[in-house]
Each structure stands twice: as structure tokens, then as C-alpha cells.
Design a protein around this nucleic acid. Structure first.
Lengths: 151, 151
DNA sequence: GTCGATGCAAAGGCTTTGCACAGCC
DNA sequence: GGCTGTGCAAAGCCTTTGCATCGAC
């Protein structure tokens, strides 16, 4: 009894693009599936985590794979300037997927909002654009840092 | 007849922080004022534009100044991963300031939305955060690129 | 005159790339 | 077996930093 092997979907998607299923690509994607949808990892973190579980993948390949999986729509790149490029598992639910970030300590909370999605859809439609993804970044101060700033 | 000298506000803000008003800092800020609120420039572009108008500022100083002016709240950094870090003139109106970006060709449209701002405020309040800025990035395909993708 | 700011060039991250070898199909 | 993917190391951005000099106050 095991979860449906994720390799199948991946293999097919790759095949359609004339590309191959390799252990490295599986390892990267499975890592994201293991940690779940909410988590954002940098390339370096992906590399470290794979090494820790004895799954050898070179850093260059991590970069190549993150780019590939993003272009295939399986991962998506986050837009949080504080702290570099990060990736997370893509999902339809995440077309509307927002971040509340403390600009001082980096604490990040996620939230969803139909209001935001429909505002995004309206804006896109108004300019004749086709919406792909809609991400609201709220830069803020968390309670602790907000208190610290008052001093 | 000239617009109120921007140096005064800048001089005061700098003074309060024990810092000095230099020609370089004025040039950078004035450049942003000249091009208006909607425009996003990278450090390199700021440098190039200043050189073109014979205002000599080293690239290192451009970086230092962009960082300084941002930390003073006079400029703000954009969050558009496609195409590197960019800055624009800050203004209160821009606390709520959104981008519709074509992921294929980079065409960018701006829009505003009260609905988005209030969603951001709600989210911040719900977690006890103090909102600073609220930016919605809508990744999409512009009409031209959308058509091209259908082929 | 003092102390912060600048310019230059060098150092620093992070990311991509060239090339030979390995391994998927 | 062909041709794509990988690993390694080198190269390439973009950005920051050290240090001597300059200049705002």
C-alpha cells in the first residue's frame, strides 16, 4: 500500500517534451511532494535536504531541474525578494495564494482570498490578458518586530 | 518658476539620520522624480541614465543610494522576479499598487484596487501584523503572446 | 577640521554553462 | 547505441565591500 507513484505523471509530462525521467528529477519532485504544498525551498535548501537523505544530486542539476519543473508547471517560483528565489509545489489552489511577510524577521504566513483572485481576474480581463497566477505579497511587521520598532 | 526644490525634504530626512545631502543622492532621487511614479528602473538603468545626462555617479554609489532611499521610504523595491530588482518612486498611493505582467514578453500594466488593499489589511490584522505595503502580482499572458501560444 | 560619502577595484553570492562521461529509452 | 542528463569546475551576472580620497557640514 503506497501512494500512487508520482513518477508516472512526471514520466509522461517529460516524455511529451522529448525529455527523460531520471532519478535526480524524481528526487527533486518527490522532495517537494514530501514536504507539502505550503513549503518554499531555495535551490540550496533542496540540495542540502537531498544530501541529508543520501540522495545525491549536484547543485547544478538542482538548478536545472527546478527550472525544468517550473517550466512544466509542476513547481512555481515565489516572488519574495527578501531572501532570494524560492520554489514550491504548484497546484491549482495556488493560483490564488498569498503571502504575508515580516520585512524584518522574514516570518511568512500564507492566506487565500477570493476577493484578491477576482480583482486579479478583473484586471487581467480589462487589459485583454489571460491570467495564469495571482500572488499578493503583503509586506508587514509581525507582532514581535512591530513591538521592537517602537523602542 | 520651478517645482519646489526636492532637496529640502531629502536634506531634512537625511539630517535626521545623521546623513548628508550629496549631489549623487540628489541626482538619483531627481531622476526618479523626473520619470514619474509609474516607472521601474534597475540599478544599471539608473546608472546609465545618469551618465547620459552627464551626471556622474559611480555604480557602487547608485547601489548604495538606492538602498538608502528605499530604507528611508522614498523609493520602493519592486517584486518582479522576471528581470531582476527594480525600484520606483514611493508614494502613499503606491501602498496599494499592482502589476499585471506578461510572463512571456514582460509587458507590464499597473492597476489599483481597493478590494486588494482591504484583503491585505484583513490578512495582516488577522495575524497581528502591521501592514506596510501590499502588492498584487498577476502573472498572465498579454493578448499578443496569448495568441502566439495557441499555435 | 571631522566624519561621512564617493570612486575604484576587488571580493562575494548565486546561477548558469562547457565539456566529458554516464545512463535512460 | 544514440542522444539526453549529469557532475564538476569554470565563467557570468549582479551586488556589496575595503580603502584611500573627497567634500558636506
Amino acid at each position: 500500500m503506497q501512494a500512487s507513484p508520482p513518477s508516472d505523471g512526471l514520466r509522461t509530462s517529460l516524455h511529451d517534451r522529448g525529455q527523460r525521467l531520471t532519478p535526480q528529477r524524481q528526487r527533486v519532485l518527490q522532495l517537494f511532494e514530501r514536504i507539502g504544498e505550503g513549503s518554499h525551498l531555495s535551490a540550496e535548501e533542496v540540495h542540502q535536504r537531498l544530501l541529508r537523505s543520501d540522495e545525491r544530486v549536484s547543485l547544478a542539476t538542482v538548478y536545472r531541474t527546478l527550472r525544468l519543473l517550473s517550466s512544466m508547471g509542476l513547481l512555481q517560483e515565489l516572488e519574495l525578494p527578501e531572501g532570494g528565489r524560492r520554489f514550491e509545489l504548484a497546484s491549482d489552489a495556488h493560483r490564488d495564494h498569498h503571502h504575508l511577510v515580516c520585512v524584518r524577521c522574514g516570518q511568512t504566513e500564507e492566506f487565500e482570498s477570493d476577493a484578491v483572485l477576482s480583482a486579479g481576474e478583473q484586471a487581467a480581463a480589462g487589459h485583454g490578458f489571460r491570467l495564469l497566477e495571482c500572488v499578493l505579497n503583503v509586506r508587514a511587521l509581525c507582532p514581535r518586530c512591530s513591538a521592537a520598532e517602537q523602542l
